[in-house]
Amino acid sequence: MSYLSPLLNRSGAVAAGGLDAGVASHYGDPNREQRLLAGYLGKPGSAVVDLSHRGVVTVTGPDRLSWLNTLSSQALTNLAPNVGTELLLLTIQGRIEFDARVVDDGGTAWLIVETAEAAPLAQWLNSMKFMLRVEIADVSADWAVAGSVTEVPGWEKYLVWVDPWPNIGAGGYSYAALPEADHPGLERPWREYLIPATEFVEAVGSLPLAGVWAAEALRLAAWRPRRGAETDEKTIPHELDLMRTAVHLAKGCYKGQETIARVHNLGHPPRRLVFLQLDGSLHTLPAAGSEVLLEDRVVGKVTSVAQHFEMGPIALAVIKRSVDPAAVLMVDDSGEKYPANQEIIVATDAGQVLGRQTGFLRPPR
C-alpha cells in the first residue's frame, strides 16, 4: 500500500503527487508557508516540512564507512560523526544510479534517499557485502524525515543531516560560472532530521508546517539538483554541478571513476543544468518534462518547476552544453509557450581541467 503521512490529516493539507506522493504539497497557503520556511515571517527554522515519505537505509558494522568508500564517489573512510555528506553510486559509464544523503552517528551510517529508491538501494548494497562486516537494512517504515532551514528547537536529540550544498567539499570541484560567494545556495541552509516514526506526530506537535511546494521552490532557487527530477538514465554528475558536494576527485577506485576523471580532465559534460526565470504573464506553470526550445530546435527539457514567493515562476532545466548562454529560450508545454531567461549554473566551458593546466586541449565534442 502507498505511504500516506499522518500529517495529511492536518487542516488544509493538500496531498502532493509525483516524487512527493504521500505528503502535503501545502496546507492552504503556499506562499505564506514558503516565506515562513525561508525566515521572512520570523526566524528561519520556525516551519518544518514533512518529508516522511523519504526512504531510509542503514549500514552498520565496523567496516561500514570503508566499505561505502570503495563503492561510491565520496571519500567516507574518515567521515566524522554527525557530519552530513552526499554520495553517488554510478554505473561503469559514470551515470548516476543512486544519490544518497549520508550521516554517520558513530555506529550506524544513515542513507536518506527518494521514496522508491530505498528497497533497490538496500538490495544492491546487500549484493555487494561479500565477506565484509556490514549489515544493511531498509528502515523506511520505522523512521520519518522532516526538513527545515535551520535548527528546530527541541529536536536536538534527533540525528540530523546538514546539506553540504553549495560548499565545495574536500576533493570536490565547482562547475559554476559565478564566484562562490555569490552562489544562491548560500541563502538556503538545509537540514533533514531523522525521527522515529512512532514519535513523528508528537515531535512535530504545534510547529508551523510548510508543504513540499515551499521546500521545492527554495531548492530550485538554490540551484540544488534532485535525484529523479534533474536526473535521467544518462545523467553524469558533471552536468548538475554535483562534483562540488558528491564526488571526491582524489579518492581510490570506484565504479564509474574512469568516466568521472576523463570528462573532468579532458572533456566536457554533454549537457548542463540551467536556472530559468519564466514569463509569468500566462498565470500558469509549465509541467516538468516540457521541452526547452531555442528558436524551433529542442535543446533540452524542464526538470522542476515552482512558484517562488519573490521571483515568481522559476524552473530548472537540463539543456545541451553548446546552447548560447545569452539566448532567450522558450519552454513548450504541449503548445503553451513560456519565454525563459537563463541563469548559468554549469558553465558552458566546464571540464577540460587537465587540458587547461597543461595546455593540451582536445577538440570540443
Rank of each mutant, 00 (worst) to 15 (best):
K337Y: 12
D332Y: 05
L294K: 04
A287Y: 07
I319K: 02
S281T: 15
G18R: 08
M128T: 07
A197G: 06
W161P: 00
A141P: 00
D163K: 07
I344T: 15
I345N: 01
G300A: 04
A100G: 01
E258T: 10
S140R: 02
R226F: 06
S206M: 11
Q357Y: 01
L4V: 12
H248R: 05
V102N: 02
M311F: 09
E230M: 05
A326L: 14
D20P: 00
A340D: 04
S334Q: 15
E230S: 12
P313Q: 03
T58E: 05
L186N: 12
T91P: 00
D105N: 11
L242R: 11
L159H: 02
E180A: 14
I344H: 00
A137T: 06
L354V: 12
I168M: 07
H53I: 06
N31C: 05
T284G: 04
R272P: 04
V204D: 12
W67M: 05
G61S: 12
R272H: 09
K234S: 13
D20A: 10
D279F: 09
P164W: 07
E202C: 03
P364S: 08
H26G: 02
D138N: 15
S2T: 13
D63L: 06
L242K: 05
L71F: 09
N9F: 00
L278Y: 04
H268F: 09
S73Y: 00
E202D: 15
E86I: 04
L88E: 00
Q257M: 05
E239Q: 14
G355Q: 04
S174H: 06
G12F: 01
V299N: 01
A118Q: 05
L207H: 14
E239V: 13
L51V: 02
L87K: 00
S206E: 15
A203G: 11
W213D: 13
V353Q: 13
A350N: 03
V212A: 03
P270T: 14
R356V: 02
V204K: 06
L273K: 01
Y175D: 12
T358Y: 03
A100T: 02
